[in-house]
Amino acid sequence: YWITCCPTCDVDINTWVPFYSTELNKPAMIYCSHGDGHWVHAQCMDLAERTLIHLSAGSNKYYCNEHVEIARALHTP
């Protein structure tokens, strides 16, 4: 949970406070499906809480801010 998930990541173990109602003692993470995949903080991706809950409940693929354009290009005929 205490990783630098992207170039603009500002989640710090020493200063972090809950942002989403689902967070208690660690930041919400979401899995990016690009390549071998990697974890990113939901807050760093500017996800709305409703979107985070929807993604967490389903089996939808998610692409982080850095990889979403690549994913779109691969799926565009």
Rank of each mutant, 00 (worst) to 15 (best):
D36K: 03
I53Y: 08
F19A: 04
E66K: 09
A57L: 07
A71Y: 15
V40Q: 02
N25R: 10
I70Y: 14
T76H: 07
T4A: 08
H38R: 02
E49T: 03
C64H: 00
W16P: 02
N25E: 15
T76E: 15
P7K: 14
I30V: 03
T76K: 14
H34I: 05
C44F: 00
L24I: 07
P27H: 01
S59I: 15
C44W: 00
N25M: 05
T4E: 10
V68A: 07
C6Y: 05
C6F: 04
A48S: 10
E66M: 14
D10T: 13
Y20D: 02
A48Y: 09
L24N: 13
W39G: 02
K26M: 02
S21H: 14
M29I: 05
P18N: 02
G37K: 01
G58Y: 08
G35S: 07
T4W: 04
L24H: 02
Y63E: 09
T22A: 07
T51R: 13
S33G: 10
Y63V: 10
W16G: 02
G35E: 14
L52R: 03
E69C: 03
P18S: 03
W39P: 04
C64D: 00
H34F: 04
L52V: 11
A28K: 08
I13A: 07
N25F: 03
V40R: 01
W16I: 08
T8D: 04
S56R: 12
M45T: 03
V17C: 15
G35K: 13
Y31P: 05
T76L: 11
N25C: 04
D10Q: 15
R50D: 11
C32R: 00
R72Q: 09
F19C: 06
P18L: 11
G37W: 00
C6V: 09
K26F: 08
C64T: 00
N14Q: 04
I13E: 15
S21A: 06
Y62L: 04
E49S: 05
Y31E: 11
N25V: 14
D46T: 14
W16R: 03
L47P: 01
G58W: 10
A73R: 12
L52K: 03
W2L: 02
R72M: 09
S21C: 13
P77Q: 12
I70D: 15
H54M: 09
H34N: 09
E66L: 12
I70T: 06
K61V: 14
R72P: 12
S21P: 12
L47V: 13
N65C: 07
T76W: 04
L47T: 09
H34Y: 09
D46R: 13
P18H: 06
S33F: 11
N60Q: 09
Y1R: 02
Y20E: 02
L24T: 09
C32A: 00
H75K: 12
R72C: 07
W16H: 06
Y1F: 09
C32V: 01
Y1W: 06
A57R: 11
I53K: 11
H34E: 09
T76P: 14
V40F: 00
T22E: 11
C64K: 01
I70C: 15
D12S: 05
K61M: 15
A73E: 12
D12Q: 07
N65G: 13
Y1I: 04
Y63A: 10
T15L: 15
R50E: 13
I70N: 07
I53Q: 15
Y62S: 02
S59Y: 11
A57C: 08
P77A: 08
N65K: 10
L52C: 07
A28Y: 12
M29T: 03
C64E: 00
V11A: 01
C32Y: 00
D12V: 04
C44K: 00
H41P: 01
T51F: 08
C32T: 00
Y62V: 03
E69R: 13
E23M: 01
I13L: 09
S56I: 08
N14S: 03
K61D: 02
C32G: 00
M45I: 02
T51Y: 10
K26G: 07
K26N: 11
L52F: 06
W16F: 01
W2V: 00
T4L: 10
S21W: 03
C9T: 01
T4V: 08
T4Q: 06
V68P: 08
T51E: 11
A71E: 14
N60V: 11
I53C: 10
T8E: 14
D10G: 11
N60S: 10
Y1M: 10
T51V: 10
E23F: 00
I3N: 10
E66T: 10
A71R: 13
A48G: 09
Y62E: 02
H41W: 01
N25H: 15
M45D: 06
S33T: 11
V40C: 06
T8C: 15
N60E: 14
E69K: 06
T15P: 01
R50Y: 08
Q43L: 06
W16T: 07
Y20H: 07
A48K: 12
A57S: 14
E66I: 07
W16Q: 00
L74G: 15
T76D: 05
K61I: 15
I53R: 12
W39F: 09
D36L: 09
G58L: 13
P18A: 11
Y31H: 10
Y63P: 02
L52T: 07
T51H: 12
Y1V: 12
C9R: 01
N14T: 13
K26P: 01
Y20F: 07
S21R: 08
H34G: 12
N25Y: 03
L24A: 07
V11T: 04
S56M: 13
H54F: 02
W2K: 07
I3E: 09
C44S: 00
W2T: 05
P77G: 07
K26A: 05
V17G: 01
I53A: 15
Y63W: 15
D10S: 08
V40G: 01
T8V: 06
A42V: 05
E69L: 06
Y20A: 02
G58Q: 13
G58H: 13
D12R: 15
A71S: 11
H75F: 09
E69M: 15
G37C: 02
I3W: 07
Y1S: 09
A42K: 03
I13W: 08
N14M: 12
D10N: 13
V40A: 04
H54G: 13
V68E: 03
V40H: 00
T76S: 10
H67G: 08
R72L: 09
S59T: 13
H38Q: 01
T4Y: 07
D46W: 06
W2F: 13
S56D: 11
Y31W: 06
N65I: 15
C44D: 01
L47G: 02
N14P: 03
R50Q: 11
A57Q: 13
E66Y: 06
H54W: 10
T4N: 13
G37H: 01
A48N: 04
E23S: 01
H75I: 12
I70Q: 11
W2A: 03
D36H: 05
E23G: 03
C32Q: 00
A48W: 11
L55P: 05
H75G: 14
I13R: 15
I70E: 09
M45P: 00
H75E: 13
T51D: 10
G35A: 07
I3H: 05
L47S: 05
E49W: 04
L47I: 08
Y20P: 03
N14R: 07
W2I: 04
Y1E: 10
R50N: 05
C64P: 01
M45A: 07
C44Y: 00
L52M: 09
E69F: 01
H34K: 05
V68Y: 04
A48F: 07
T4K: 10
Q43K: 15
L74Q: 10
R50M: 13
E23C: 00
Y63G: 03
A28N: 14
H34W: 06
A42L: 01
N25L: 14
H34D: 09
S21F: 07
I3C: 08
G58F: 05
M45V: 05
E49F: 07
P7D: 12
T8I: 01
N60L: 12
N60F: 05
L24P: 02
I70G: 10
C32I: 00
V11C: 13
C32M: 01
I30R: 04
W39I: 05
A57V: 07
T76Q: 12
D10W: 14
I70W: 07
H54E: 13
I70M: 13
S33W: 09
A73S: 09
P18G: 03
Y62R: 02
A28G: 01
Q43E: 03
A57W: 05
I53S: 14
W39R: 06
C64F: 00
S59N: 05
D12P: 03
N14V: 07
A73D: 13
I30M: 05
G58E: 13
L47R: 03
L55N: 10
V17I: 07
F19G: 07
E49K: 04
Y62K: 02
I3G: 11
T76F: 03
I13T: 04
T22K: 14
P7A: 02
T22L: 06
G58S: 11
D36Y: 04
S59C: 12
T51W: 03
T4P: 05
C32W: 00
K61G: 14
A42S: 06
T8W: 02
I53T: 12
S59G: 13
R72F: 08
A71L: 13
H54V: 12
G37P: 14
A57F: 07
L74S: 07
S21Q: 04
C6H: 01
R50I: 14
H54K: 15
C44I: 00
W39V: 06
A71G: 10
D36F: 05
